[in-house]
Design a protein around this nucleic acid. Structure first.
Lengths: 114, 114
DNA sequence: ATCAACAGTTCCGAATTTCTGAACTACGGA
DNA sequence: TCCGTAGTTCAGAAATTCGGAACTGTTGAT
């Protein structure tokens, strides 16, 4: 297995962040991760309520999040601990990630249309 | 020609905004538009300095920006006036667009790597 | 040491999306 | 009406995404 790539803080690009968070499934994963204390594993985040994300898709979502700089993943025994890099990121792009999460959060507050 | 579609404010989705602004060419277009006073035309924004965006690609970029809710386009004689919907948008998703533009602006301030 | 179970990754083909040259539509002026 | 300009639509090649199946790496049991 290839070692996992994490960009250095200064190499993180806004387009990668926006792209990663332009997928609601990835946002759902990221938001759960941001809420979870100890760092979530892949399989713990696969269930979206209305659908269970296939393993390979899930792995790809984590890769996109990781390589965009949004999360850090490290192997811990048989599983993978994933945690957000939000403190770092907020230093580099102040307010960006939180504004995005707020925007998605906004949707949840509104009455469903459709 | 089909009439141009503009989503109502309440139908604007964060994923569409993020997706639209995850492309540096579109961000460059949007940023110029945000800076321009009277609303820019397509052809006035085609030149990116290092590359001239082909007409059809440009038209598609404007379509993505328009249908995500970022801009409003209206025909004025032979050309198209495009203007940002930033005031409206900021009401719906406070701070989102400005945080994104700030993040991209951040890059410009840093010494180029590569 | 060998085996089984499990977490996650990689591979690869199908489906979808993006890109852009060429053809087309719409408007205004002569 | 015919021409020029601004932008849209079409179509097919190229690139990307999705997800099942096979694989890798780790732990624990025998």
């Amino acid at each position: 297995m290839r070692p996992l790539f994490h960009p250095a803080l200064e190499d993180i690009k806004p387009e990668a962040i926006l792209y990663a968070l332009s997928d609601p499934e990835r946002v759902a994963i990221y938001a759960k991760l941001a809420g979870a204390a100890g760092g979530g594993t892949c399989s713990a985040l696969a269930d979206l309520g209305d659908r269970i994300i296939p393993k390979s898709s899930l792995s790809n979502h984590f890769k996109v999040l990781r390589e965009s700089g949004l999360i850090r993943s490290e192997r811990q025994g048989v599983e993978m601990r994933n945690q957000t890099r939000c403190a770092e990121l907020d230093e580099r792009f102040p307010g960006l990630v939180s504004a995005i999460l707020m925007a998605y959060g906004q949707l949840a507050k509104e009455p469903k249309t459709g």
